[in-house]
Every structure is written in structure tokens, then in C-alpha cells.
Design a protein around this nucleic acid. Structure first.
Lengths: 248, 248
DNA sequence: CGTCAACTGGACTATATTGTCCATATATAC
DNA sequence: GTATATATGGACAATATAGTCCAGTTGACG
């Protein structure tokens, strides 16, 4: 204070001040420029009015597809927007054009994955009406997971585990998806009960929940062990449980 | 190049160069200073030789305990080192004194959580010898999880899901822990089989894996639905499966 | 075919988080 | 009790990542 000796500290401080002042000046200029460019005729409160052209829709789909892929392999938190940008061959501004922030992109990923899984499972389960059919369902899941030796786990379960305590909206969507998935199983089991394959005291909803839990637990153990055997054992347990309700 | 007009860009460039040069100079000075402070008598290749005094051990334990807590509630990726520092009432340098990086801290968390769960389960399972005992085990887990309405999931399962595809060493530790946990169940089931409670054709290992999968799947569904019912249903299915191997 | 809204690219800023450094304090061993 | 290794605190640097901005391009539609 009051010293006139130029020390390194002094100089650095001075330079910082200069730079900061510059910064402020430049910012002010930019702000003014922006303001002057804004057309006055456009009302400020109008919402963006997103009406996608085919090109925009394609870009959006490409972004979501890349994000679905990356988050499945790396996990949601380990996937950066830059990863997504690169993989989808787009740019930062496109991401923010289609999604207000990362959270919304993640929600789109959740919705897309849920749609994919449910469509697949609808195909596998809508004609389920025999125990043999349930075994085929089990085999298809095991085979699919064996391809990657159990890595990455369930497309929905891994999201659920990562997001459940972090984004309540995503959690709710996932919860609904599980309900719907179990519903597909339950419908098949109900058909089996109504046709006399299962005893009348079989509870389709509870059996479906049991199957889903075995599936999810199996996924997790397989992913951790890098071995699908626990998944097979878990599903076989659940199938045995269903079998115990077979007539005759 | 060759121009003598001082523009803002020029000035900024020059300043950046000056600052960079300074930086380099300061760094060199620091390095030299460090070098001169080093006692020559100490061999360079000696490893840090971490031999904790009681005080250090207490601090380390405090750090791990805080990290265990925070990662359980917020997830591993959402827990910052600054969170851990604040919660453990320590400082950055302490963290890095005890752990080379975040990854190692996470591994310590994994080890600690595994130790905690296994100790608890050892207490719950080491005297397991009847179906009643298995029901008590189930009830204890459900009650414990009901306290938080299913939130956060299993202390090990949630870690497994988050780390399995991200840190192979952590994954391996978790896999071993699951094996040990299942081993506790299997040992109890084997006692039941040997004492004639279970039929000779009961496979303790498979039954244990089934129980564990139902437990983990139940945790996940309960966490997602914010409702422990699916966990109860899943465990009851697994218990029914064990029951189907009871004699008489 | 011209106009304009919508889309695109990428440089840039802001911020959060990890990781480094060193002067000081403390405890353990001699 | 002194010496020395170890632990501590907090300021600091480096980096990674989210998010902003705008000039320029494209394509739909009159």
C-alpha cells in the first residue's frame, strides 16, 4: 500500500485488473450489439414454437440414437455432451436447439429406450399363452445378453439404477415402463390361467413381478460377474415358480 | 506480422505471451527450489512408505465414512471430492494424502461397504438353519429398506450397477462380495439340507443365487417404484422356491 | 425465385471439479 | 526435549464439461 516498487505480485494484479476491465468493456459492447439486432416486432413472450421440419426431426433422432448408444455403454453420467455431439455428427448448438439441457436429453434417452424395449417385448410376449412360450422368452433374453457377456446390463434397469435418485421425472417414466413390461407378462400369464394352463389361484401380476425381479437381479449379477450364469439361474427359479402353478 | 499498429488482438496476444513466459519462469524456479530442498541422502525410488499413525488412520476412516454415506445417497458420480471434504471435516490435501485420486477413494468406499454388508449379513445368516430363519432374514431386509421407502437401493447393488462398466477393479471386488454373500446363504441352506430340512436334491448354491437375484431385482424395482411391495413379492417368490425343496 | 423462419457450425464463456503445492502444525521416536 | 517424519489447511492451477452466442446456410412456402 503506497509502495512504488514494482513486484511480480503488483504487476500480476495490475494486469488482472486491466484484463478484467477489458473483459467488461467487450461484454458491454456485445450486449449492446445483441440488443440492437433484436427485431422489435417480435413479441418477447412467444414460446419457441418448435415445429420440426423433416431435416430437424432427422437430426434430433440422430442425437437421441447416439445418446442412447453411448449412455448404454458408458453410463449416463460418464457420457458427455461432446461425446454425443461427435457420435451424432452434429454440433453443440444443435443439441441445445433440440434439448434445453442435458437432463432433457437424458429424458429423451429414457423414453426412447423404454419404447425400444417395450416394442421388442410386445413382439415377444403378445402371443404368450403356454409355458413353452415363457421358456422361449427366457432364452431370447439370455441369448441377447450373452452376446455381450452380460456387460451393460438391462437397457432399462441400468437407467433406473442410475437415475432413480437423481431425476424424479425419469424415475417415474421408468417405473411406468416396468409396469407396462410386467403388464405384458401378466397378460400372457392371465391367458394361460384363463385357458386352464395355470391353476385359478395363480396371480398373474405377482408372477409377473417375480419374473421381472428375477430378470433384473439376474442382469445385475451377470453384469457384475461378467458371466450370464446367475441370470440363467435366476430366470429358471422364476420359471420354476410359475411352473408350480401349472395344472396337472 | 510486421505490422506496428497496436490492436486489441495484438495486445491480448502479447499479454498472453508475457503471462505464459512468466508462468514458465515461475515454474522453473519452483522446480529448482523443490530440488534443492530434497535431501540427497533419501533414495529416489523409495515408495511413499505409508505407515499410518493413529491420527492419520482416524482421518482416513472419517473420509471413507463420509464418502460411503454421500455416495449411497447421491451416487458415486454425483459425489464430488469437495462434498467429501466438507462432510468429513478435512481438506483437499488430506484426501490426496490418503488416496492418490478419486478412483482409489471410490475403491475404498466399495471395500468399506462390502465389509459392512457382509458383517451385517454374517450376523443374520451364520446361524441360519431353518425356513423360519430365512423368513426372518427376508423380513429384516424388507424392514430396513422400508425405512427409506426403497430409496437408494442395495448398498452393494447400486455400486455394482454404477461401477461395473467403469472400473474393472471395483467390479471384481463387488463380484467377490456377492459370491461371499451368496456363500453365507448357501452355507445356511446346506446346513438345512444336511439336517434333513431340505431334500437332498436341493442345490444350495443355485438357491442362494436365486435368492440374491430376487433380492437385487426387488431392490431395483422398489427403488424405481418408490414402493417396497415388488421387493416383498420377489423375495416371497424366492422363498417359495426354497420351500418347494422342503421335506415332507 | 425470393424471403424468412428454422437449422447449422463452431468459437466462446462460465462453472464445476479434479488435482497440486507449500508453509505450518502435530505427533512420534530417540 | 529435540529432531524428524508425517499430517494438515487452504490457496492455487489445470482441466473437463455444461451452456451461450451469433454469423452464415439451408430449405419450405408463397
Amino acid at each position: 500500500m503506497g509502495g512504488h516498487v514494482l513486484t511480480a505480485e503488483n504487476l500480476i494484479t495490475v494486469l488482472r485488473q486491466v484484463v478484467a476491465e477489458w473483459d467488461r468493456a467487450v461484454h458491454t459492447a456485445t450486449v449492446i450489439k445483441q440488443g440492437s439486432l433484436r427485431t422489435v416486432s417480435r413479441p418477447e413472450n412467444t414460446q419457441p414454437a418448435r415445429r420440426l421440419t423433416p431435416r430437424g426431426a432427422a437430426t434430433r433422432a440422430r442425437i437421441v440414437a447416439a445418446a442412447v448408444e453411448l449412455t448404454y455403454v458408458k453410463g449416463v453420467n460418464a457420457t458427455t455432451l461432446d461425446d454425443v455431439r461427435a457420435a451424432s455428427n452434429t454440433s453443440k448448438s444443435q443439441l441445445y436447439n433440440h434439448f434445453p439441457d442435458k437432463e432433457e436429453l437424458v429424458r429423451a434417452v429414457v423414453a426412447e429406450r423404454a419404447a425400444q424395449v417395450l416394442e421388442r417385448e410386445r413382439g415377444n410376449l403378445q402371443r404368450l399363452k403356454s409355458f413353452r412360450g415363457l421358456v422361449r422368452w427366457r432364452d431370447a433374453l439370455v441369448q441377447r445378453n450373452a452376446l455381450q457377456n452380460g456387460a451393460y446390463g438391462c437397457a432399462l434397469g441400468s437407467l433406473a439404477s442410475e437415475l432413480a435418485d437423481q431425476d424424479d421425472q425419469a424415475r417415474a417414466t421408468l417405473a411406468e415402463s416396468f409396469v407396462e413390461w410386467e403388464g405384458l407378462l401378466a397378460a400372457g400369464l392371465r391367458r394361460m390361467r384363463d385357458s386352464g394352463v395355470l391353476r385359478p389361484d395363480a396371480d398373474p401380476e405377482k408372477l409377473a413381478t417375480g419374473l421381472m425381479a428375477a430378470l433384473q437381479g439376474g442382469y445385475l449379477l451377470a453384469e457384475t460377474a461378467h458371466d450370464i450364469k446367475p441370470m440363467e439361474i435366476a430366470l429358471d427359479m422364476a420359471l420354476d415358480h410359475v411352473k408350480s402353478f401349472l395344472t396337472a
